[in-house]
Design a protein around this nucleic acid. Structure first.
Lengths: 136, 136
DNA sequence: ATTTCCACTTGCATTTTGCAAGTAATTTTA
DNA sequence: TAAAATTACTTGCAAAATGCAAGTGGAAAT
């Protein structure tokens, strides 16, 4: 499962080739908040992604090994999406984006509370979330 | 200079609204490597951005307060671009992207050497680069 | 004075995005 | 148990963004 068609050998450029668009990291964000989500749950998230774009991004992210599909334990009509270890490894990137956003945007109380926790002890926060995401 | 038209109140989404595309962070990367670059230098960088896209991204990044334009000390025909403090604050995001890329892509010796330095002492590396970028 | 350099802009074809409406397989409801 | 609703998508088409190549206008070099 190799990544090719890279614009250059730069890891930033190669990363952006996979998830450098307006939507992919929002899907990753949602899967960091809740560990597992159905297609419909992802579709209903705040930013209102179009259904064809969601399908397209899920497919790209799965092909890149960042997310994986699972059977829903209660219904064959539903599908669960979840971060792989490679996807979970994006958490530090996500945290730094949050911290940058914290500095330069007006945030809701919910986000402020979330970020207070991150800032209190970044490493501990990371470990806690990673542990949650990895649990079966 | 307020940011509006945000898709949602989420700082990740708002960040992506500004620099969530395949090119913006590559411009930021170039400006982290060399502190100041002319339009032509940015144009000639490895990933071969199209000239109209470069102009468009520079304009968006400037409007967002991430980069600024400076007079070239030796020529009125040239323009220098440089990161603002807001742009320099993207360095932690960039570092984490590099580290993710280090784990999941094949890197050149140059990038490996660069990342060895980052991994040896992340905080020290950050401080060193920030100091360099801030100098007049 | 003329050519070259530099930072862009413009025009147009191609690709990606976004919206709305379908579809096929389940699951729920009457 | 047949019909209706849910779920995860796909399809078709218009609108927007991207990419390429060829300008353009001012500054610098020859």
């Amino acid at each position: 499962m190799k990544e090719n068609n890279r614009r250059s050998g730069c890891p930033v450029s190669s990363s952006l080739d996979i998830w450098g668009d307006k939507w992919s990291l929002l899907i990753v964000r949602d899967l960091m908040y809740s560990k597992e989500r159905t297609y419909g749950e992802l579709l209903r998230s705040e930013e209102k992604i179009a259904t064809n774009i969601l399908a397209s991004r899920l497919s790209t992210l799965e092909a890149a090994g960042i997310i994986s599909k699972l059977e829903h334990p209660e219904s064959k009509a539903k599908v669960l999406y979840r971060l792989t270890d490679k996807g979970i490894d994006l958490l530090p990137v996500m945290i730094e984006i949050y911290l940058w956003g914290d500095k330069y945007f007006e945030l809701s109380e919910t986000h402020k509370a979330f970020l207070a926790e991150v800032k209190k002890d970044k490493a501990a926060f990371l470990e806690r979330v990673v542990a949650k995401l990895r649990q079966p």
